[in-house]
Nucleic acid binder design. Structure first.
Length: 409
RNA sequence: GUGGCCGUAGCUCAGCCUGGUAGAGCGCCUGGUUGUGGUCCAGGAGGUCGCGGGUUCGAACCCCGUCGGCCACCCCA
């Protein structure tokens, strides 16, 4: 094999790509029904945009960024996520007036060792609700992500929810957590010991330390009354919206710009080390960190690659409505015009261009996953074609003037 | 970054231990069926055995190196 796709990247070809087309349509439609507008930003940004706000874990995270120096000597980075870009774009455009509701869709890049559901280029669909401090915004965003998974038939999804409080709550919590970890020093892994002072919250979701940290204090124990009220509002809203959720006190975020609500979507039947198919959080501090006016914000990002892996295997839907089969070479011109007519009517139609046996043309129709084969032969002179249902083998004689409505019925 | 497993036909893999001129199933093409796919039967095409080096009369097979894939750890903005 001379050339292959770069490590950790995937080619998406038909017929498998049909699932991607569907996922995109469903997302665009859903986001627009909730009042969000398409928000497109560059796939690369100045490196500083991403390293700012990442905070304590900068070194680790920069190892996972696709960073390079361009011909003008600028350090740029392929976007590892979209939130920073969207916020930057909104600040650049003058900031939020009232509220801003945007959605995006596209590839993101992280330099990591690939495994199931973890690629170097991967796709996310996300939404950002900017300028709204009310817990109703959190609820709407959580709901939208949940609805998306439902509409794509991802089975058995659990919403895991937590509140990590505001900055002041977290620094108090952090102190107490470090004290706790120090008391368990002997039971902790080497990694945990190394990280307990720079990013202690991350120790909570280390697999190796699950037993040692059982009983550790959790962020929820340190919420200010404002943060606690907000969290209560989110929970009440989810119950009203009939979104099932589970509070997971150890669910945290490593980055400084998150506050209060954080959540993840986990399909319980999806077996992979990388099990979350999406997640979000409130990030009220981010605007100021990026030089904008203080602006409350909440958003979610859905991982398309994992969602498509976790989906119920969709029944193989036809990719074409009709495949025209030329049974009589003398009617080639008519058959060509017939295909064009079907396409003009909005139907997905195709045919074999060259001179092939009827048998070979049927085979091609089958492979193209057409719903019907339409035979153009001697019946054409009577103004009819033979329509064969390729799934059942049933055949019908259909008048030409009715064929479009017949196929669409 | 660390570890385990794996690279042989388009795909999934057997052969490797015990070196002797490369196999199966599926897929593909043709025919049986001069207008019928998906089933059945017959025939056929298709491979620098990931790459480089070494050992040997001889290497898919043994040795060394290298590249790639998968999964887990790690990380998860």
């Amino acid at each position: 094999m001379t050339y292959r796709a770069p490590k950790g990247t995937d080619d998406i070809l038909p017929p498998a790509s049909a699932a991607w087309v569907e996922a995109e349509r469903v997302f665009f439609d859903l986001a627009e029904r909730y009042g969000y507008g398409l928000t497109l930003t560059p796939m690369f940004e100045s490196t500083e945009l991403f390293s700012r706000g990442i905070g304590e874990d900068t070194e680790v995270v920069e190892k996972q960024m696709y960073t390079f120096v361009d011909k003008g000597g600028r350090s740029v980075t392929l976007r590892p996520e979209a939130t920073a870009s969207v916020v930057r774009a909104v600040i650049q455009a003058g900031g939020v007036v009232g509220t801003f509701k945007g959605f995006y869709w596209g590839p993101m890049f992280r330099y990591e060792r690939p495994q199931k559901g973890r690629r170097r280029q991967f796709s996310q669909a996300g939404i950002e609700y900017l300028g709204e401090p009310d817990p109703g915004a959190d609820v709407e965003v959580i709901e939208l992500g949940y609805r998306y998974l439902q509409e794509l038939d991802v089975p058995n999804v659990e919403v895991r929810l937590n509140s990590i409080g505001d900055a002041a709550d977290r620094s108090e919590y952090r102190k107490r957590l470090i004290e706790f970890l120090e008391s368990r020093r002997d039971d902790l892994s080497e990694d945990a010991l190394r990280r307990m002072y720079d990013n202690p919250m991350r120790v909570l979701d280390s697999k190796a330390d699950a037993d040692a940290v059982a009983g550790a204090p959790t962020p929820a124990d340190f919420l200010s009354s404002e943060a606690a009220d907000h969290f209560a509002g989110v929970r009440a809203g989810l119950e009203e919206a009939d979104i099932p959720y589970r509070i997971v006190p150890t669910l945290v975020r490593g980055l400084d710009y998150y506050n209060r609500t954080v959540w993840e979507y986990v399909p319980l039947d999806f077996e992979a080390a990388q099990s979350s198919v999406g997640g979000g959080g409130r990030y009220d501090p981010l605007f100021e960190m990026l030089g904008g006016k203080p602006t409350p914000a909440v958003g979610v990002a859905m991982g398309l690659d994992r969602i498509l892996l976790a989906r119920n295997e969709a029944a193989q839907k036809p990719l074409l409505d009709a495949y025209v089969i030329l049974a009589d070479p003398d009617r080639r011109t008519e058959a060509t015009e017939f295909v064009r007519r079907l396409r003009d009517a909005g139907l997905r139609a195709d045919r074999t261009v060259g001179d092939r046996s009827v048998k070979a043309q049927f085979k091609a129709a089958d492979r193209a996953r057409a719903a019907y084969a339409l035979v153009v032969g001697e019946e054409w002179d009577e103004g009819r074609v033979t329509a064969r249902d390729l799934a059942t083998g049933e055949q019908f004689s259909v008048a030409l003037e009715e064929i479009e409505t017949w196929l669409k019925r």
